[in-house]
Simulated scan of single mutants.
Amino acid sequence: MVHYVIDPAEIEAFERFGRRWMELVERHGGTHHGYFLPAEGASDAALALFSFPSLAAYEEYRALFGSDPDFVEADRIRDESGCVLRYDRTFMRPVLPGGS
């Protein structure tokens, strides 16, 4: 899970940023479960949820940060618009209905 503090005035840029990252996660073996943006009232909070089949698969994906041109281009949306003020990543595991 990635928790973002966003600039509400740059929500459209954040959506472009999010759509690009959804493509990249899916292309590199992950499953993106979506970005969750403010729906009512003033808010600067947004969330992204995605998963990978293993820690090794996630680490392969992370190794592309800063070097793969598509990753750099996606981050440029964030950097040039200022849509993300800060973010933090939390690793979680699901407890799903019917699980044992």
Rank of each mutant, 00 (worst) to 15 (best):
M1H: 10
M1I: 07
M1A: 12
V2S: 00
V2I: 14
H3G: 08
H3E: 14
Y4G: 02
V5C: 12
I6Q: 08
D7A: 07
D7K: 06
D7Q: 07
A9L: 12
E10R: 15
E10Q: 15
I11V: 14
I11F: 10
E12M: 10
E12F: 06
F14D: 06
E15F: 05
R16F: 10
R16S: 15
G18A: 12
R19S: 12
R19N: 15
R19F: 10
R19A: 15
R20E: 13
M22C: 09
L24H: 04
L24V: 00
V25F: 03
G29E: 09
G29K: 06
G29Y: 05
G30R: 02
G30S: 03
T31L: 11
H32M: 10
G34V: 00
Y35A: 13
Y35G: 14
F36H: 12
F36R: 07
P38I: 02
P38S: 07
P38C: 04
P38V: 02
P38M: 08
P38Y: 04
A39F: 12
E40P: 00
E40H: 11
G41L: 08
G41T: 07
A42K: 12
A42Y: 14
A42T: 11
A42F: 14
A42V: 08
S43V: 04
D44L: 06
A45Y: 14
A45P: 00
A46F: 11
A46S: 11
L47I: 13
L47E: 08
A48L: 09
L49M: 12
F50T: 06
F50V: 07
F50D: 09
S51Q: 04
F52S: 02
F52K: 08
F52D: 03
P53G: 07
S54I: 01
S54G: 01
L55E: 12
L55Q: 10
L55C: 00
A56L: 04
A56K: 09
A56W: 01
A57M: 03
Y58E: 10
E60H: 11
Y61A: 07
R62D: 14
R62C: 08
A63K: 12
L64E: 06
F65H: 14
F65C: 02
G66S: 03
G66L: 01
G66F: 01
G66I: 02
S67K: 13
D68H: 15
D68L: 04
P69H: 03
P69G: 04
V72R: 10
E73G: 00
E73A: 15
A74S: 11
A74K: 04
R76H: 13
R76C: 11
I77R: 10
I77A: 06
I77L: 13
R78Y: 09
D79I: 12
D79H: 12
E80W: 04
E80Y: 05
E80P: 03
S81D: 02
G82W: 05
G82M: 05
C83K: 01
C83S: 00
C83H: 01
C83Y: 01
V84Q: 05
L85D: 06
L85S: 09
R86D: 14
R86T: 14
R86A: 13
Y87N: 10
D88R: 11
R89G: 00
R89N: 05
T90P: 00
F91G: 01
M92Y: 00
P94K: 05
P94L: 06
P94N: 02
V95G: 11
P97Q: 08
P97K: 08
S100Q: 13
